[in-house]
Amino acid sequence: MIRRPGDAQFTAFVQDAWRPLYRSAYLLLGEHGAAEDLAQAALTKTYAAWGRVREPDAAYGYARTVLLNEARSLFRRTSWRRELPSDDLPEQTHEPDPSDRPAVLDALRLLPPRQRAVIVLRFYEDLDVERTADTLGCSPGTVKSQTSAALSKLRRLLGDAVLPEGALHD
């Protein structure tokens, strides 16, 4: 017998889960409309599969798994592999003023989609290399090389205080 949540029960769950799921989706995809679609899709599937959520306390973990699963489906579509190149980083002719440096999320927007996703999955979602590779549909070697390339770019943008020398490799 598949349990279905009552509307009031599920609405309360959505109110709790929406913000963290939306933030994860936004960091992964970098675009509000797409983030809303992804978070909404994750919660829609959570509703539809509520019978698999054995404990109400586990519902958020389930929804987060569904969100990463949805993201994995998205990443594995050919269209997502068709990444846009990052904007070229400007050549630095002088030591940058630390106060001019962008926030981390601004810097994240300058990364190509796969590199951005690698950073978010590894350092926000705290996934290991293998799980990140599985989510993105690429090899662990590619995750490592993309992580290294992304950290190099972020270090140029954010400076040593955020990413000290030596933080560029696993």
Partner: peptide
Amino acid sequence: PVPAAPAEAIIAGG
């Protein structure tokens, strides 16, 4: 910034 949770749309979608 997080928009309001579209709970009704999610339930209807489910």
